[in-house]
């Protein structure tokens, strides 16, 4: 019973903070967008042009230069982009979470500040940026139905990332080594996840191991929803289980750590 309550808190807690502090979040969100493009000629446009240019570069390399063709239900380029853009969004959010508390330390260290709001910022900012590009790319590649589903996919991934970002930002305060290790680990996970390749290209034994990688399941689900590739119930249930397991502890531990975070930095 306690587990159910805690898990419920882990979901409703952050959403409650999101609602209560929407004004503050708005200020931080706008500031984040402004900082990324301050001093540039095209301003906010860059945020979307940059990932879009990346897509064009991938298209040029894979389709035009290397002419990569794999047998499968969808063209490889389509498969790759449908996975790569959400992956980049997740990698962006996770990488930033590790540094997050240090980045905002001046705001909360000696003042009143709703600390649990901060870990929600990386998935929100990353989701907003990549969500737009993803929707446009899906519209071009897969048509309006997939384009309509793309923002929902991004929102689902943002929700999934929520407890992960709480845990990463919490541990990042106390274990500085994490800041060095996480970018490397994310790259490793990238190669272990069927993004650059299709799952069926793996040897069968390796395919069995994929059930240990929740990101592989997430990607299989994303492809299934947007491109109609084969995805089983397991691909949805396994990451869902990981999410449910993480929700409670992430929220409880972050709250327990709040006074420590204020003092540690």
């Amino acid at each position: 019973m306690r587990l159910v309550t805690r898990t419920g808190q882990g979901l409703l807690g952050p959403l409650g903070v999101l609602w209560r502090e929407r004004d503050l979040l708005g200020v931080l969100f706008r500031r984040d967008m402004a900082v990324r493009t301050s001093g540039t000629l095209f301003g906010g446009l860059w945020m979307f042009v940059q990932p879009a240019l990346q897509v064009v570069a991938f298209w040029f390399l894979l389709d035009f230069v290397l002419r990569v063709r794999f047998p499968g239900a969808v063209p490889f380029l389509h498969y790759f982009l449908a996975g790569m853009i959400p992956w980049q969004m997740m990698a962006d959010a996770m990488n930033r979470s590790v540094y997050l508390m240090g980045e905002f330390a001046p705001l909360y260290a000696r003042a009143v500040f709703p600390l649990p709001l901060l870990p929600l910022l990386p998935p929100l900012v990353a989701g907003a940026i990549y969500g737009v590009v993803y929707t446009l790319v899906m519209l071009v590649l897969e048509g309006p139905a997939s384009a309509a589903a793309a923002p929902l996919v991004i929102v689902a991934l943002m929700l999934w990332l929520m407890p992960v970002c709480y845990l990463l930002s919490l541990v990042g305060v106390f274990v500085r080594d994490l800041a060095q290790a996480v970018p490397f680990l994310i790259t490793i996970v990238f190669y272990l996840t069927p993004i650059l390749y299709m799952p069926e290209m793996l040897p069968e034994r390796a395919q069995d191991w994929m059930i240990l990688n929740p990101f592989a399941d997430l990607m299989a689900s994303v492809h299934g929803v947007l491109q109609g590739t084969e995805a089983g119930l397991g691909n949805v249930l396994r990451p869902l289980a990981v999410w449910l397991v993480l929700l409670g502890p992430a929220w409880v531990l972050f709250h327990r750590a709040t006074p420590h975070i204020r003092e540690a930095l």
Binding site: P106, A111, V112
Partner: peptide, 14 residues
């Protein structure tokens, strides 16, 4: 509560 406790508290230098 309005607090003026430490110089720069609650402000972001960037």
């Amino acid at each position: 509560v309005g607090a003026l406790l430490e110089l720069g508290g609650g402000f972001h230098p960037d």
